[in-house]
Simulated scan of single mutants.
Amino acid sequence: MNRPNTPAWLIAAVTLLPLVAQAATVQVTVLGRDGKPLAHAVVVIEPTSGARPAAPAPVSAVINQQKMQFVPGTSVLPVGSKVTFTNLDTWEHHVRGMPAGLASLNPGTQPGFELRLDGKAEGKDPASAEVTLSKAGAVQLGCHLHGSMRGFIFVADSPWTLVTDANGVATLQGVPEGAAKVRVVHADQILEAPPVAVNITPVTALSLPTQVQSRRRRP
């Protein structure tokens, strides 16, 4: 039963709700150049019909430097997010953040950042510094002192962005049905492949091969 004071526009909106495009579940399996599942790949779904969705809300995140690694090694964070880098090792590290892939050849289009973090002293809090991720895109992390240290951040402006698991699978919920394009981005990728056009149905499963040969990660 409708309440007497309910506005007519609200009644109409509720009546039309079943006509709104349904949200789908999309499972994407990403394969490396060798045909094996590719972990730590970033899958981005961008609907191409209807209004552009709002970017996800910024968050606060922590990336540690621990045992000569960035932890987590791959992160997906919305545009505007703040990241605190913390050095848990007892020796000094740097944090170098630069545009990934070919964009690194022209860093003036997307400025990077550099931080210096002292080693953790016994009985004291670890050194940390905060960075705001103000522009969408891929960021490669490194350390000036330790060339083997590598990390990766994908700064997302699509709410349907996720990292593949150990089986190379990313399952994204709430994706609008209809035309869309799917992108795959990986830390070991030099040139991003063109997006793949797809039609999203209520339950969609995709297998996407890539030319990425993932480097072996340190344990």
Rank of each mutant, 00 (worst) to 15 (best):
E46P: 00
N64P: 00
S49G: 13
K36S: 10
V62M: 15
S81R: 06
G174R: 00
K67Q: 14
N106C: 05
R52W: 10
E130C: 05
D157P: 00
W9I: 12
L141S: 06
N2Y: 10
L133T: 11
G50K: 05
F85H: 06
P18Y: 00
N2I: 09
A8Q: 14
R218Q: 13
G142Q: 09
S81T: 09
T86H: 06
A179I: 02
F85G: 03
R218C: 01
T29P: 05
R33P: 01
V139S: 11
I200E: 04
L102S: 13
W160M: 06
V139F: 04
A170I: 07
S128R: 15
A8M: 10
Q110E: 08
A57L: 14
M149W: 06
K82S: 14
E177T: 14
L88A: 08
L38V: 06
L16T: 07
T132S: 14
V20K: 00
A136E: 11
G137D: 08
T109M: 09
H94K: 11
L191Q: 12
A12C: 11
N5I: 01
G97T: 02
D157S: 10
F152W: 04
R218I: 05
T161H: 07
A129N: 09
G174T: 03
V198L: 09
A21F: 08
Q140G: 12
D188I: 00
R217A: 13
K120D: 00
V43W: 00
P7G: 11
A138F: 03
L208W: 00
N5L: 05
L208P: 05
T201G: 04
A138T: 04
S128T: 12
Q27E: 14
P202I: 08
P202A: 09
V20I: 10
P111E: 00
A24T: 07
T74F: 10
V139T: 07
M68G: 08
W91K: 15
A57S: 15
M98G: 11
A23I: 01
V95I: 11
V182H: 02
R3C: 03
V62C: 12
A187N: 03
G97L: 04
A179V: 01
V83D: 04
G147L: 06
L145V: 07
F152E: 03
